[in-house]
Amino acid sequence: MVPATAAQAVPLVEVQVKGDLDAQSAPEVNRLLEQALALRPQQIVVDLADCDTIDGAGVLLLLDAHRRAVRDGGAVALRSPSERARRVLRLAKVDRIMQLLPYAVVELAPAGPVVA
């Protein structure tokens, strides 16, 4: 296996978390983050729109992923955490370390002329 170089880094990888991010789900989410980190992206966006709650294990997992991404010249941002998850992230001061993004709305251009 050839080690990744800066020229091989991808700009963005998105990881979507569904359900709770807790001690039970952390190993699976960690596996996905490991795969994302292996790509050496400039940024990993963890989509938390469908994540109801985060516990201490989830917070530690996110912080570790961010630390590892920064070490390789990247970053991890969290998108669309629920109000409950946002409260946990705020109490753990994660919002001071990682960027919290609002939900990204993608506007698609019409495929052809619009007939009224």
Rank of each mutant, 00 (worst) to 15 (best):
M1H: 15
M1F: 11
A4P: 05
A4F: 10
T5G: 12
T5R: 09
T5N: 07
A6L: 14
A7D: 13
Q8H: 13
Q8N: 12
V10A: 04
V15R: 03
Q16R: 15
V17Y: 02
K18Y: 05
G19I: 06
L21E: 03
L21Y: 08
D22I: 06
A23L: 14
A23Q: 13
S25H: 08
A26K: 10
E28M: 12
N30D: 14
R31I: 11
L32F: 06
L32E: 12
L33G: 04
E34S: 13
Q35F: 05
A36N: 01
A38E: 10
A38R: 09
L39W: 06
R40I: 04
R40M: 06
I44K: 01
V45C: 01
L48S: 04
A49N: 10
A49V: 08
C51D: 00
D52F: 08
I54W: 01
D55R: 09
G56M: 14
D64V: 09
D64R: 12
R67G: 04
R67C: 01
A69H: 02
A69C: 06
V70N: 03
R71Y: 07
R71V: 08
D72S: 04
G73W: 06
A75K: 11
A75G: 05
A75L: 08
A75T: 10
S80I: 03
S82R: 10
S82I: 07
E83L: 10
R84F: 07
R84P: 00
A85I: 07
R86H: 05
R86T: 09
V88S: 05
L89Y: 04
L89R: 03
L89F: 05
A92E: 03
R96P: 02
R96M: 09
R96L: 10
P102I: 05
P102V: 05
Y103G: 05
V105D: 12
V106M: 10
E107D: 14
L108G: 11
A109T: 14
P110G: 13
P110L: 15
P110E: 14
P113M: 13
V115R: 14
V115L: 15
